[in-house]
């Protein structure tokens, strides 16, 4: 199914805030059309890794290449070209509060295409429709619920049909039904447009039902401790930390008296 060629290539990445090294010696690749989940306990640097991958923060060491464009080279034109290929869903949505949903989605389309305003508004309705938000065009982000904000900002991230979509905690804080809808949406995007997805998540449901491959980060190692097929990792990993994560165990593995 998967085409075996590299879309994102990360080599020897080191990330730090001030003197604190958060991540070191990060090496991995993301393939064309793949759904990759980046997982790990809280504070292990998942979001930091994402911020580096989309060029929001410059790494202190190492290189990141997106579809042949090295975003860490410092060349502005290369970086802009790479930005055209990616879409990002931020954890809190990051919709512009002073604009309606339609204006939020239309912003990148108006900026980067030569479509007429009427065509743009039709397209925006198609985009909002595809995330089940038809009829909410004229609402402000403050007037809709959390799940709707996630979906609207997914529609905005998808506005230009980017090759790569980065999702930061797409289902955090949502009810199981809405989460399942978002998972279905992710699979649909991946199938219909062959979009490559990089998902940061804690959700075991995304890890097992959606992701093709996972990369697990760890706070003590400050890097990758496991990668591969989640189902295999769950049963066959030799690392107790990895098994604990997938099997939802606490550190003391025996059941405590008040747990049933």
């Amino acid at each position: 199914m998967l085409q075996a060629d590299t879309l994102i290539d990360i080599k020897n990445l080191q990330a730090r805030y001030g003197d604190t090294v958060v991540l070191k010696d990060i090496n991995f690749e993301v393939m064309h059309g793949e759904i990759l989940a980046i997982i790990g306990g809280s504070g292990c640097g998942k979001t930091t890794l994402l911020r580096h991958m989309v060029g929001l923060v410059e790494p202190s060491k190492g290189s990141i290449v997106i579809d042949g464009d090295e975003i860490t080279s410092g060349d502005e034109a290369t970086f802009q070209r790479a930005l055209q290929k990616i879409g990002i869903l931020f954890q809190a949505g990051a919709l512009f509060g002073s604009m309606t949903l339609a204006e939020n989605v239309a912003l990148p389309i108006l900026q980067y295409t030569d479509l007429s305003p009427e065509a743009v508004s039709t397209l925006v309705r198609m985009k909002l429709c595809s995330v089940d938000l038809e009829g909410y065009e004229d609402h402000l982000p403050s007037e809709i619920s959390g799940g709707m904000i996630k979906r609207a900002s997914l529609a905005r991230a998808l506005a230009l049909n980017p090759q790569i979509l980065f999702l930061d905690e797409p289902t955090a804080g949502l009810d199981p039904v809405t989460s399942a809808e978002i998972e279905a949406l992710i699979l649909q995007i991946n199938h219909s447009l062959r979009t490559t997805l990089v998902i940061i998540t804690h959700s075991l449901s995304i890890i097992f039902k959606v992701a093709h491959r996972v990369i697990m980060l760890d706070k003590t190692v400050k890097g990758i401790i496991a990668q591969g097929d989640p189902k295999q990792l769950k049963t066959k990993s030799s690392d107790p930390v990895v098994r604990q994560f997938f099997n939802r165990q606490t550190k003391a593995s025996e059941n405590l008296p008040w747990q049933r």
Partner: peptide, 17 residues
């Protein structure tokens, strides 16, 4: 597949605004 996803067959494309 894309045309189905975008409701191309229904004349109004989406629920009316």
């Amino acid at each position: 597949e894309i045309l189905t996803l975008t409701n191309f067959e229904s004349p109004k494309l989406c629920a009316p605004l």
